[in-house]
Structure formats: structure tokens, C-alpha cells
Nucleic acid binder design. Structure first.
Lengths: 215, 215
DNA sequence: CTAATATGAATGAATG
DNA sequence: CATTCATTCATATTAG
């Protein structure tokens, strides 16, 4: 990997900028935007999901269905970190500051309902003065605000009817079995050890194509 | 793009430094050292190898058995969950499996916009091998996929002009937990050591190309 | 610490 | 297509 020795470089590829520069002691660093990192993350998650599913499939086919509930299709259960006993990779989420919240609530109360895209931009840039925020954050906030006030209204209406009211919040998302990740990982691992590494590499491209792993 | 007024944060984790720069419009960049990039590469390599082998197994075994899930009226009994004896869930809405998603993405990437009705039939029937799905699901998926990809433009390239950005599309500021890189970097090491490095790098190159990780 | 809740975000489906 | 709604998921926060 050669990245030149300039303090900073621009790499234009597919319309994206990649920056590279010296960090500290001559260590060369590459800069990825959050979106790029996120894309990468998704890609890796896709791999892990596939590995997960197939490993499970393998196990069930091998008639060793011991243990644990499985959670399929959960793209956010990352066996990578769990396989070494670490926590599941987390994503960070925006948290409105008090001021931002205040402003948002004000705007919301003014009734105008769904802000247009244009309005969202305005709001976002105003709120940006009080902390980091994006238009998407604003958009989501209004979506959620509307949806939840509506739901609240409905559930209170329901409770007036006083029937089989298990309302408000009936079902709690069942927590993922802590051992799930570990088991999955072990499944992958054991299978992996079983597999002959040398076989079938040539078919990789076909496989990758089939699953769209290479984009 | 310039780096003049960057905010810098250090995240100390397991002795590694991750730098996060606030570029200009609140766009954040993550800095990875060559070493870290190398680590990432290794893990991707590992996953690609695992996925390949598992998928092969899946294919060969699928030739003999149908393990792709059972429709029970409105209920969908996940084959793997079923194998462990619980969790028959009622799904109010279709949820693509990881495999289905990958296939869909793959088709989507091949461009050609809205698939014809005929095409949708084909896609649906192919995806049906991996789980319950209807043509409507496929149709909706493409609709949504298109619509939402539009919202994801802009972002990382130009961050200088912020004033009258009526033209700019929404951008997600989805900061990624700095732990992400760390966790990824440490996770699959055990797998990696089993993987075939020489072959894996090829797949890495393919995978990483779209992220511009390589020079 | 564990459990419950609040809420930001993702996404299938519906509507115009 | 463009928007919007409804539901679900995951995380941050707080209560016990």
C-alpha cells in the first residue's frame, strides 16, 4: 500500500474524497467519511449475516440442534465482536440538545404538520447552531413525533373503551440471548475448521456474484 | 476540502488512537492508520472465505433438501428457528432475509431501474427459494430502494458551500461508534489466521474497491 | 447490575 | 415517482 508521503492527499474515486495525511509520528492515516464507514460496516454485516445463517443451516442439517434461540435476519447482531467476547457493535445516534428539542417542539406545536423538504433544511440549519444535527435527524424527529402522538391518542381512546386493554405497550422486545452470538460464532468457527480451506476457491467469484458481495 | 479548522478528538481504546475530525459542515471523518486498514482488510478476507465455504455447503445441501422455510398461512416458520423448536412468528410484513437482500441489492446495482412485471416475477420466484416473498414485496422493495437512494447523495464530497443549499439532498449524519473499528479489528482474528491470505486478498480488493480503500 | 421505557432510525407498505 | 404512514429495531436513559 503506497500512499505517498505528502502530508495530505486527495484521492478522487467514484466521486468520493479520500484524505490521507500524517497523524502523529509519521504514521500515515486514511480518512473515511462516516458514510463510507457506514457502508463498510453494512458490507461486513452482510458477510456476517450470511455466515451466520449458513452456519446455522449447517448445524441444523447436521442434526445437532442443541441450544438457544436463533435470531435470523438481524443484521445488527455482529458475531465479530461477540466471537471474542466483546459487545455487539453499536451505532451511535443523534441526541437532541435541550435547546434543539425546545425549538422542534415549538415548530411542531405551530401545527404546520409535515414540514416540506425546504422547511426541513431551514430548521436543520437553524438547529445546527445549537449542536450537531442533520436534515435527516429533523425529518425523523417529525416523523416520530407525529406517529407517536397519534399512537398515544389512539391508545388512550382504546383504554376508554376498557376492553382487553393490554394496550400501551404489550410486548417487550425480547432481549437477544446472550449466548446466541457466542453460539453462532462457535458454529461458524467449528464449521470453518471442518471445512477444507483449499477446496473450491475458484468458485468464489460465482458465489460472490450470486450474493452480490462484490457490489 | 481543507483541514484548517478541524476539531480533533482522541478516542483511547486498547492503546489505539482514533482521530475524528470535524470537517467543515459537521461532516465527520474517521482516520484509520495503515495498520488499522490492514486489520480491516484481514477481517474482510476472513469473512469472504467463510461466506464462500458456507455458501457452497448451502448450495450443495439445498440440492437435496428444501430448508427454506415453511409457509403456514399467515405464519412464517423460520426453518432454523423451527429446528430449535420455538419461535413461530406471525409476520405482518415481509422481512427480507440476508440472502434475499443481497440478491436484491445485486440486481439493483446492475442498474436498469424498474424491473418489468415479468422481471419481477422472475426475481420473486428466485427469491422464494430463500424465504417467503411475493411479487408485491419485490416491487415495493425496488420502489423504496430507488426512492431512498436518492436521499443519500451529496454528503462527503462538497462541504464548503452551506449557505443556500436548497439543492443539496438530505444527508445522514450517522456517526459510527469509534468502537466499531476497534471491535472489527479485533474480532475475526482467529478466523483470519485460518484463512487463505493469498486468495483472500483478491476478494478483498474487489470488495474494497468500492470504498476506495486502495490507492 | 438488570429491567423497563423513551426515542432515533430503518424500512415495508400505502397513498397522491 | 414522491411522500407519508405504520411498525419494528436498537440504543440511550432511567428506575428499581
Amino acid at each position: 500500500m503506497e500512499w505517498g508521503n505528502q502530508e495530505m492527499q486527495h484521492h478522487h474515486q467514484q466521486g468520493e474524497d479520500f484524505l490521507q495525511y500524517q497523524i502523529q509520528n509519521g504514521v500515515c492515516g486514511k480518512v473515511m467519511t462516516d458514510e463510507q464507514v457506514e457502508e463498510l460496516r453494512k458490507q461486513i454485516v452482510a458477510y456476517s449475516a450470511i455466515s451466520e445463517q449458513l452456519a446455522e443451516l449447517h448445524k441444523s442439517m447436521s442434526a445437532h440442534h442443541n441450544f438457544t434461540g436463533i435470531r435470523l435476519g438481524n443484521l445488527y447482531c455482529d458475531p465479530i465482536s461477540a466471537s471474542v467476547g466483546h459487545k455487539i457493535t453499536a451505532r451511535q445516534r443523534w441526541t437532541p440538545t435541550a435547546l434543539q428539542l425546545q425549538i422542534l417542539e415549538n415548530i411542531y406545536e405551530q401545527g404546520i404538520g409535515t414540514p416540506s423538504k425546504q422547511k426541513i433544511k431551514e430548521i436543520a440549519s437553524e438547529l445546527a447552531q445549537h449542536g450537531p444535527i442533520s436534515e435527516t435527524n429533523v425529518y425523523n424527529w417529525f416523523q416520530n413525533r407525529r406517529a407517536r402522538s397519534k399512537r398515544k391518542l389512539q391508545s388512550s381512546t382504546d383504554s376508554v373503551n376498557a376492553e382487553t386493554d393490554m394496550s400501551t405497550k404489550e410486548k417487550r422486545t425480547k432481549p437477544v440471548d446472550p449466548d446466541f452470538i457466542t453460539n453462532i460464532s462457535q458454529g461458524v468457527e467449528s464449521f470453518y475448521f471442518q471445512a477444507s480451506i483449499s477446496r473450491g476457491y475458484d468458485s468464489y467469484n460465482n458465489l460472490a456474484e450470486q450474493f452480490g458481495l462484490l457490489g
